[in-house]
Amino acid sequence: MSLIQTENLTKVYGAGETAITALNCVNLQVNAGEFVAVMGPSGCGKSTLLHLLGGLDRPTSGSVMIQDHPLAKLSDDALSQLRRRKIGFVFQFFNLIPILSSVENAALPLLLDGKNSAQAKHKASEWLTKIGLGERLKNRPDQLSAGQQQRVAIARALVTEPVLILADEPTGNLDTKSADEIADLLKQVAKTWGRAVLMVTHDPRIATHADRIVLMRDGQIVEDKRNAKDEG
């Protein structure tokens, strides 16, 4: 059984004549330790797919299963708990809380989960150190480069030991060098730490870091292939 499994996943915005089908009967499986890049032109449904997988939005029809849990049946609180424990998010604009330090930002999910502050911060420091920010624990976001900020966001995503990392254009706001570093880091997340990573990107060069590339157009998957470079 795959870690993620979707069945005829469909999302329609609006109703009647103005209805827009953002996602149309999508079936997708992702396994643990797999790094998947989702590509496609603007408005093809990439982000909608990501939101539905992360339980941020509810589908119009079809279903999403994560580790055999159907998301549709979960209450808002249960969904919050699932996001907290099983899923890590990485955003294009980092979305760090500007008033908190790196370690405090990274510790947030654990604090939200009721862990005590010292434990949470210890865990956060460990992850920050693993991804190369051991020297920057006390810095606030405005004292970090864009690449470093995104690393903090990745540490935040990993700190609860989730099974799945969802990244929405994680390199969209970075220079080439930082972008490559972040893509490599995500690959490491999948390969070394065994998480499933699903990354939405515009950038074909970044997509080449992934094991699998899923191409979408008009709300449907039009191509799902193993990465040639990866195979080679």
Partner: peptide
């Protein structure tokens, strides 16, 4: 809105 949305995304529930 952004901060709150992010907190919700990483698992904060409504009560929090």
């Amino acid at each position: 809105r952004h901060d709150i949305g992010m907190l919700r995304a990483i698992g904060a529930n409504r009560a929090t």
